[in-house]
């Protein structure tokens, strides 16, 4: 099955947050009310009951003046998900069309995935002691529907379909934007982290949308997951085996020497 993905075109987004509401509605997530922090953004980031948010960002451009950017922010459904690698319960899996999904019955709330994620998107839901994130509405998609967010988008900023086709659409859109007043327009998600199953058309460089320009799985995580965890534990069986060998040889040697007094030191 071909990869199915969401294409999010920033240049068409009006930040109406219909996707945020549709996501809450479909996933039956309670409202999370956070205090006002000075802009229109509803939540600081994704949280245990909020899988997707619209980020609002302002910055001052020396040429173009004040810029106000929106970004729909949620799980990127990486081709090679770090969260899936670190999960000790193998609760995270990937569907054949590219959605990275979690089995909440297996999740134990250890939050390794939160900190392995280059975007820190999975979040802890305290009341159930699990970590949650966007599922790309895999249960809808597998029934032939679109994700809730894509279905509800009134401006066509969110479209759902086969990734290869959407990539062509995105490339043409970027060409158009570059020729029409957005010279720094770019695609995000095509090559980042080896490919994301989530495509963005940005009107400016990714850092203007609080996205890492070159996202990487944190070094501490790869070091721990690829080296410490698989290759370091053998020291424990060595200690146990050494003790067992010593237990036998000390007693054999003591019998051989006919020596019943305690020798040596502890």
């Amino acid at each position: 099955m071909a990869r199915m993905t969401n294409l999010y075109d920033v240049s068409k987004c009006t930040a109406c947050r219909g996707c945020q509401v549709a996501c809450k509605d479909w996933n039956q997530l309670p409202a999370v009310i956070e205090p006002f922090t000075g802009n229109y953004q509803t939540h600081e980031s994704t949280n245990g009951d909020t899988y997707t948010i619209i980020k609002f960002m302002e910055h001052e451009d020396p040429v173009d003046g004040i810029q106000w950017n929106f970004l729909k922010f949620n799980c990127m459904h990486c081709f090679d998900p770090a969260c899936m690698d670190v999960c000790p319960q193998e609760a995270i899996t990937q569907t054949e069309w590219g959605a990275v999904i979690k089995d909440y019955d297996k999740c134990i709330g250890c939050q390794y995935c939160t900190y392995a994620c280059p975007f820190e998107i999975p979040k802890y839901r305290k009341r159930e002691d699990i970590v949650t994130k966007c599922t790309l509405c895999y249960e809808r998609v597998e029934e032939g529907l679109e994700p809730a967010c894509a279905r509800t988008c009134p401006t066509g900023a969110l479209t759902f379909g086969e990734r290869d086709q959407l990539l062509q659409v995105a490339e043409e859109r970027v060409k158009f934007l570059r020729a029409n007043g957005f010279p720094r327009a770019t695609i995000y998600g095509k090559l980042e982290l080896g490919g994301l199953n989530k495509l963005f058309v940005l009107t400016d460089t990714p850092d203007k949308f609080e996205l890492p320009i070159d996202p990487k799985v944190p070094g501490q995580i790869t070091f721990w997951q690829d080296w410490i965890q698989p290759y370091f534990g053998w020291l424990i069986p060595v200690a146990l085996a050494g003790s067992a060998v010593s237990f036998v040889t000390t007693r054999i040697l003591a019998n051989k020497n006919g020596d019943h007094t305690e020798g040596g030191h502890e």
């Binding site: 424990i236 007693r251 305690e262």
Partner: peptide, 13 residues
Amino acid sequence: CMHGYLGSFHPGS
């Protein structure tokens, strides 16, 4: 592991 063994079953201890 070593400490547990040396502090108990190792005859030298």
